[in-house]
Design a binder for these strands. Sequence first.
DNA 1: GTGGTCTAGACCACC
DNA 2: GTGGTCTAGACCACG
Lengths: 125, 125, 125, 125
Amino acid sequence: MILLDYKDRRPIYEQIVEKLQDLMVCGALTEDSQLPSVRSLAMELSINPNTIQRAYAELERQGFIYSIKGKGSFVAENGMIKEAKRLHLYNDLERLAGEARLLGITKQELTHRVEQYYDITGGVR
Amino acid sequence: MILLDYKDRRPIYEQIVEKLQDLMVCGALTEDSQLPSVRSLAMELSINPNTIQRAYAELERQGFIYSIKGKGSFVAENGMIKEAKRLHLYNDLERLAGEARLLGITKQELTHRVEQYYDITGGVR
Amino acid sequence: MILLDYKDRRPIYEQIVEKLQDLMVCGALTEDSQLPSVRSLAMELSINPNTIQRAYAELERQGFIYSIKGKGSFVAENGMIKEAKRLHLYNDLERLAGEARLLGITKQELTHRVEQYYDITGGVR
Amino acid sequence: MILLDYKDRRPIYEQIVEKLQDLMVCGALTEDSQLPSVRSLAMELSINPNTIQRAYAELERQGFIYSIKGKGSFVAENGMIKEAKRLHLYNDLERLAGEARLLGITKQELTHRVEQYYDITGGVR
DNA sequence: GTGGTCTAGACCACC
DNA sequence: GTGGTCTAGACCACG
């Protein structure tokens, strides 16, 4: 379900956060469905439960999931997630556009690249 | 000349590297011109000389500058600098395009945003 | 495990880098095995942890090891390591061959020396 | 007569030492002939006389030249120079041979490379 | 004066 | 516990 990349420079908990976000966005985890428990997911990935705990805390902070004491963690409204990730992406895009301009890349070249990449990319990161 | 953002999660030396790269790319620092000395820049930014030293070392490793003991640090050929930053940017763009697709953003919407951002951005980050 | 030569003109961190490379190449450090921690190796060699840190950073930059915050540093694929060191060696050899020619050393003399040294050398530097 | 490479990482005085050694070895500077004065060579290369001074001192220390107060610096016996450089080269060769063995390069491969490089190299470094 | 290395000691993020 | 960043201050080689 989730594959960790220990050679990735990002912290483990961040990888988990992102993978879970992706699963929600692509519909594999539907609204109000229950996430695996901290302990079981930790066992499955053979990592420290603290790390899962932190990932869940982060997701809750961002409003992507909600936790009920004694019951577990559940997927929040799906729309918000997409919206949040979209906003984040638009921010990155704006930064890139500015930098491209600095580098003397024309608008034509830039949009052409974007279209090209959009068509090519299979999806998985 | 250079503004540090202490709230930024990235290390200071990395911010300096990027800022100096930008100054070289946009032509504010011309080929073979001398950079401020490690100590003077450290003083100006009120940070430790070691941190500047590290930024300069990184820039030298990437081929953006060359340093001569006892003389100073100088900007290298900058054709290659632009090329390097361009490649980096295209990589980021490809990643973003893939993610946008996952999020259900249409190609039209994406390119439209890109054009918009390209026109708006004044330049300074 | 590692012997430092304080009379050597090269910086300590560079000596450590080379020694560790050798240990990886000759198989004493196997793929994905954990390196001693920054602090423990520093203690063992009675030098400052920062110096070890720098050596590890250099090895990571060259792709010889990978480091995970909070976990440790581990040796990477070592096929590429050998290849990299090989290339480096061939470069040095080419330089030497040219110099030998300048000095009037005959090809016979040169190859003879090479064979001799190859047979003699026990290995450890 | 001498070209300095400011982008070379080695110190200037070391470059000068090597260039002068080469000139002696190849016969351009004959035994007992006078070297340019410190001041004139410094002027010619537009560098600090101290740097030339240091190069000459190094050459004298190695026995390649001899200085007479009030008269100037002169080329020493030519045989010694070649011999010294030869010895140095053999040392490097021995080191390389040992390393090659560690890397699993066969003796055949090594000598073949040496012969090849010997034939190819034009000479100038 | 310059860049480069090293030490001692602190703090942070992560697991 | 781990690696990574930063500071303060020292020393060296070089020009």
